[in-house]
Simulated assay, not measured.
Amino acid sequence: MKRDERGVAYPSPLVMLSVIAVAMAGVAFVATKDQPEQERRVETVASTPTPTTEAAPEPAPAPEPPPEPEKPAVERGKIYVEVYNNTGIKGLAASTAEKISGAGWQVVGTDNWVGTIPAPTVYFPQRLKAAAELLALDLGFQRVQPAVAPMKQDRLTVILTG
């Protein structure tokens, strides 16, 4: 009698689970291979706190931040200021120049300004920016801008508006 070799042999369930596990691992590897690594913080949690009898150590004092370098103080008397009137009010530049001189600034000229300025402004060359901010503070002005032509680059220029 001849044996018939027809039929299908099914692998055991253990072999099937192993093949599925390897396939799943391969899929997971391919899906996450371009992902950045993530660090995780592992903390242990005690089931019951243990009482301590010794005092907790004092925390070390925080280091003091390094002192900020001080900006050089602006010497008002060494800064030249020109005052221009951009309004129809006669004598406004002269009266403002007196106020500026009274605060210690060195006013070297007053005149009228022709043009459109949106608000009273102190214009400055780059090296005098701190002085311009201080002069604006002295005058109560909100607007401080870099100097533009034809303004001189060795002094502050104040333009008054209505």
Rank of each mutant, 00 (worst) to 15 (best):
V114Q: 13
K78D: 03
N112E: 08
T116H: 03
S101N: 15
Y10L: 14
P66F: 06
G162A: 09
A56W: 04
A97P: 02
F141C: 04
Y10G: 02
A73N: 06
V42H: 12
V122L: 08
Q38E: 14
I89Q: 13
I89A: 08
F124K: 04
E70G: 05
A147K: 04
T52L: 10
P69N: 05
V81L: 14
P61N: 13
V158I: 02
E39I: 02
R3W: 07
P150T: 07
V19D: 02
A94D: 10
D34G: 11
V30C: 14
P150H: 08
P66I: 09
D154R: 04
E75V: 14
T87W: 01
T52K: 15
A23C: 12
D111A: 06
L160E: 00
E68F: 00
R40Q: 13
L135E: 10
E82T: 13
A93W: 03
L160D: 04
T44R: 10
E98D: 15
A147F: 00
V42S: 06
R143N: 02
P13D: 13
P13I: 15
E64A: 05
R76E: 11
R41M: 09
A25E: 13
A23S: 13
W105A: 10
A25G: 11
R155S: 01
L160N: 00
K71S: 08
T50F: 10
L134E: 01
P63L: 05
P66V: 10
N112L: 05
T110M: 12
A130V: 02
E58C: 03
R76L: 04
K2N: 07
E68C: 06
V8Q: 09
L156T: 06
P120I: 03
D34P: 01
K71N: 05
L134D: 13
G88E: 11
L92T: 06
Y123P: 02
I89P: 05
A28W: 07
K99S: 07
T48H: 10
E37Y: 05
K152F: 14
